[in-house]
Simulated assay, not measured.
Amino acid sequence: MVKQIRSTIRLGAIASLQVGLLAMAIPSSPTLATDFNQFNVCARELRSVGISPEESSAACAGALKPKDLSICVLRIYERTPILAREALDTCFRVRQPVELSFCVAEISQETKNPNNSQVLENCRLSLIPKRFSQCVVGLTREIDLSPAAAMENCIDAEDFPRELFPTFE
């Protein structure tokens, strides 16, 4: 019994020593601490794509999830020809900005000559942006449809038709 206690104490001491050495090896810098502040990350990322300091501060301060807002703007800016300012306006107006950015990027990259303003607006209006983008991309790949026609069909599909799903009264 005494041997087990001594063994446990030794293992605990060795583990504590390893954790202490690891902690000393990690540099502590102010920038490392600020990377965990999502408002800081948001402002830095929005500024990196040319959003003014005033707009960046207002957008990040007003966002429910500032880091998600900046991820949305960055993804749209980097993967589409849409300007960062236009992306910011749209990303700020949705509940799921990361999902919106996937929707916009997928439709923009996977369809031929989409109207980017229409893509932004339809992805914003969609209740399920990922499903919406899959619908648009899938229809344009398999059927000779323009991206505009596919978006119109897919956005309408999110409203359940009464003929197929009548109300039971």
Rank of each mutant, 00 (worst) to 15 (best):
F102I: 08
I107S: 00
N116G: 09
L46P: 01
C135S: 10
S126L: 00
A23N: 07
F168R: 07
M24V: 15
R162W: 11
P81D: 14
F168I: 13
V119Q: 02
C60T: 08
L145W: 09
C42M: 05
S48R: 08
T140C: 14
E54N: 09
S28R: 11
R141D: 11
N40L: 03
V119K: 02
N115M: 04
N113K: 08
V49W: 05
N40A: 10
R95K: 09
L88C: 12
A25N: 12
A149T: 13
C154W: 01
C103N: 09
S16P: 01
P161W: 07
R10L: 14
A87M: 01
E99C: 00
N116Y: 15
F36D: 01
N115K: 07
T111P: 03
M24H: 09
C135P: 07
L88M: 14
P114N: 09
E86C: 05
P27I: 03
A149F: 12
Y77H: 15
P30S: 12
I107H: 04
Q38Y: 13
S52L: 02
R6C: 08
P97S: 06
R47G: 10
D35A: 14
P166G: 07
C91I: 03
G20V: 05
A61W: 06
V2L: 07
F102P: 00
R44P: 00
T167D: 11
V41A: 10
C123S: 07
I76M: 13
A13I: 13
E45F: 01
Q109A: 11
F39W: 09
K112S: 09
K112P: 00
K112M: 02
R141G: 10
S146W: 02
Q4G: 15
A61S: 13
R124W: 10
D35Q: 15
S146D: 04
A105V: 03
R75K: 15
T34V: 13
D159L: 12
L120M: 14
Q134M: 08
Q134S: 15
P166W: 07
I143D: 05
E169G: 08
V2K: 08
A84Y: 09
E169M: 03
R75E: 13
A63Q: 04
R75L: 08
K3H: 12
A149V: 15
P129F: 05
F92A: 14
D144C: 06
N122F: 07
S146M: 06
A23T: 12
E152V: 00
S146T: 15
C154F: 01
A84K: 10
S101N: 03
I155A: 02
